[in-house]
Design a protein around this nucleic acid. Structure first.
Lengths: 210, 210
DNA sequence: GCGCGCGCATGACAATTGTCATCCCACGGT
DNA sequence: ACCGTGGGATGACAATTGTCATGCGCGCGC
């Protein structure tokens, strides 16, 4: 279709970031077999990814969200701040509306789920390169749903509580009093309609709010 | 063994199972570019995988663990039960000793982590095809460490508790009394050296015991 | 300067959780 | 028939958790 005209002349230059080495290599292979896309850089964490994009200035930057050092969202935000022209596409396992919202805020042009067919990937890269937006339809609808009702404190506290830490420990860790921690937790629990701290943490996590 | 004499004549036939479509496609692409390997089937869940292996009788079956319907471990076990000649290689995100143990019990010939470099994959397929075992070294050592100390009941109860359910709910769900549930939980907590049910669940999960 | 809201803390109380000691009962040996 | 054992239940008690009402100080808007 599109690029048969000039074909190999102007390949789309891509950098990929993904912490699972096997998947990273595999995605790269997947794109390389498309004649019109060329993978010019790979990164296994956010830090590396940022540098890689900055030095290569690729057309498209494909990134996972959950990575060591910096998340894909952090990297996207940083690229936006620096007014880098590279278009960002998020490729993640998580269908969490909170993530999508943050991705868009961070200026991402695409948001795909690892779930859906591999064919979509090369296509998405081309579309985004042409200046279009590619948002997984499944998410796009639900996305403008509820926004995160939690305050920063509630988030912090909930995160720790979700790991099984006791109120006292959490208090110590955050330099608060135990009673206050329980208050925050109680607030979070009621905001999320949960029955206890653990359920609350689960809910927040699945929405991408934690 | 069979026919490596003729080289390209006889490509290694592989079936891949992986629930994330994108990753599935990517892994397939990765293997296809190796001249001596041919992907003859793909599956996105355990059920499908089992059928696919049964009908294609591939040389090697590459599978993720966590999938809908049946886990990769379940499929491996079933293949062993049926005395299918196909060699099984587990490819997973999780470096959990419990998983490795179960994989070996189920007759798997390989256990790789998605973390490590993509190059290893094709190599592992060849090695396994030749009749060798390929176990991620990182795991291999630690593997013959502790075995699961939990009883069936403790496992069930812990699973539910880890999701934030209250003792009463768990009791109802399993047809036990609330006190009994607390007893099991207490046992599990002490066996795992945890401070509470949530931490206990976390620990069990990271060991692959849950 | 006044009032408001927000972040944080207290204290008090009920519900849930974690720990133990004890008990019942269905079994599987011997 | 008789013990041993393991699954399950009770009851009692302490610690932790969840809920509320209330209090304090600080910054902000007006």
């Amino acid at each position: 279709m599109t690029s048969l005209s000039k074909e190999s002349r102007k390949a789309i230059r891509v950098v990929i970031a993904e912490d699972q080495g096997m998947v990273l290599g595999a995605l790269a292979a997947l794109l390389e077999i498309e004649g019109d896309i060329s993978v010019v850089g790979r990164a296994r964490n956010g830090q590396e990814a940022l540098e890689c994009v900055l030095t290569h200035k690729p057309d498209v930057f494909l990134t996972d969200i959950e990575m060591p050092r910096l998340t894909g969202l952090d990297v996207a935000a940083e690229l936006k701040r620096r007014r880098v022209a590279t278009r960002v596409v998020i490729v993640t396992t998580f269908a969490r509306s909170g993530y999508l919202r943050r991705a868009l805020d961070a200026g991402a042009s695409g948001y795909l789920l690892k779930d859906h067919p591999a064919e979509q990937l090369a296509d998405a890269v081309r579309r985004v390169h042409r200046g279009l937006r590619v948002i997984d339809p499944e998410l796009a609808t639900e996305a403008w749903g509820e926004l995160d009702p939690l305050t920063d404190r509630e988030r912090q506290v909930l995160r720790l509580a979700g790991d099984g830490k006791a109120s006292g420990d959490i208090a110590a860790e955050l330099g608060l009093s135990e009673g206050t921690v329980r208050n925050y937790l109680s607030e979070a629990i009621s905001k999320l309609g949960a029955a206890n701290r653990v359920e609350a943490a689960r809910i927040a996590r699945t929405k991408g709010w934690l």
